[in-house]
Design a binder for these strands. Structure first.
Lengths: 151, 151
DNA sequence: CGCGCTAAATTGCATATACAATTTAGCTGA
DNA sequence: TCAGCTAAATTGTATATGCAATTTAGCGCG
């Protein structure tokens, strides 16, 4: 296979290139919408997940969001500094329990319109079909993780 | 709208959460496959784009890959340090021209099987439908950028 | 010919990311 | 009761990311 054929195949088909382009574009939309609230979309995602799962340990949180433990812990620290989350020892080894605070719930309520606006812009850019298939595929991945880690 | 309703809507529909989960998962697949070559998938993406466009200035490269100028410049520096790219002044203002080196072309040839394996794994995980709709949507975005920036 | 301008590149800074090494809080067995 | 163990959290390190501020190489005009 020649160099030109390889280059053509990669430029036509590479999933990683396209996913990174899309991710940068969509992240930018959300971060711009959220900027007035002083929160980034990665942090908001973690706050959602904590609120959804109730008081939760870090391991299932990492599993659900497919995030490395060290990244998660650093992100949790930043959110906790802002007062939207609280962490406390669970009493089992080094395990700690993460919970959303009242302030965190209020933040989620107040960012909703901005999140909704970002969601609308993201769907307009991606197209309904891509949004639907993304939801289907990633919901399947998340369900697998829930089962695997008893979340 | 109640807090619970908002939480349910976000957990069911949030595009940013799902895209970041997918991006981390897919990036990990490619980076693992490429690790023996000492290159990361972000760097490989940039190398592809430079090779594809021929000697190119930084601005159209940023536009095509939807990447911030400062990120691009830093990534280009790391690739150039490895000897796979070369940069030289274009003679117009501060503009510089980026080209792939012979060593860079050889790298692309040699990583092809590993890239192919990562591509197969990524498609197996995402499903054919998501891969097709991702390609359609992002190819449209890239085409818009090509036209807008005369690439 | 020289000065001011423009736009591209670079640098500062902070967050996001993940791999690897290290620390440490309970648990368990002797 | 204490020492060793395990697994979770933390820290070190390097790359990825983008916003903002700064630097600087040609260009153009007076």
């Amino acid at each position: 296979m020649s160099y030109e054929e390889i280059l053509h195949e990669i430029s036509s088909d590479c999933i990683a290139v396209r996913l990174k382009i899309l991710n940068r574009t969509i992240t930018s939309i959300y971060d711009k919408a959220l900027k007035p609230y002083g929160i980034r979309v990665t942090q908001l995602n973690v706050l959602f997940a904590v609120s959804l799962l109730g008081p939760v340990e870090i391991k299932p949180l990492c599993a659900l969001l497919s995030m490395d433990n060290s990244t998660m812990c650093r992100t949790l620290s930043r959110i906790e500094e802002k007062g939207w989350l609280i962490s406390e020892p669970s009493g089992h080894g080094k395990n700690i329990i993460i919970s959303i605070t009242q302030s965190g719930k209020e933040l989620l309520l107040s960012v909703y319109p901005a999140w909704k606006e970002a969601q609308v812009q993201a769907e307009a850019l991606m197209g309904k079909e891509l949004v639907l298939t993304l939801n289907d595929s990633v919901n399947t991945l998340m369900e697998k993780q829930r089962k695997k880690f008893s979340i």
